[in-house]
């Protein structure tokens, strides 16, 4: 389980970093999205992988790490997903504006 997920994180990171270095704005936006998947999964993985142990406690009871998975990385990642969306949106609009303004989709605004 851990091996598969970490391999996945590795591939997502590598693809994201590769795209980050590319000259076209659209490549960078896809790269950032891939990278944010990788980072979100990485943070999530820091709470260790558990099957069938969602952090939902019994009514009136108290939970523990023995019976439930770590809720903190999940809370972190939840906001990160929404912020990641906001970042993608902002970057997309800047990309479009830059394309309209400079006439090229190169990241520097000129070939």
């Amino acid at each position: 389980m851990e091996l598969v997920l970490s391999a996945g994180i590795g591939v997502l990171t590598a693809s994201g970093v590769w795209l980050l270095f590319r000259p076209r704005t659209y490549q960078v936006i896809i790269g950032l999205s891939l990278l944010s998947y990788a980072v979100n999964l990485f943070i999530f993985g820091m709470g260790r992988l558990r099957v069938n142990a969602p952090p939902i406690v019994e009514k009136g009871g108290a939970g523990g790490l023995l019976t439930h998975t770590d809720p903190i990385p999940q809370a972190l990642v939840l906001t990160a997903i929404v912020i990641g969306f906001a970042m993608t949106a902002l970057f997309l609009v800047v990309l479009l504006a830059s394309r309209g303004l400079t006439g090229t989709d190169h990241v520097d605004g000129r070939e």
């Binding site: 851990e2 970490s6 999964l41």
Partner: peptide
């Protein structure tokens, strides 16, 4: 660089 970064992330997370 990208492959290095990927392998690094993989090793650390694993």
């Amino acid at each position: 660089t990208a492959v290095f970064a990927g392998i690094g992330m993989m090793l650390i997370s694993y």
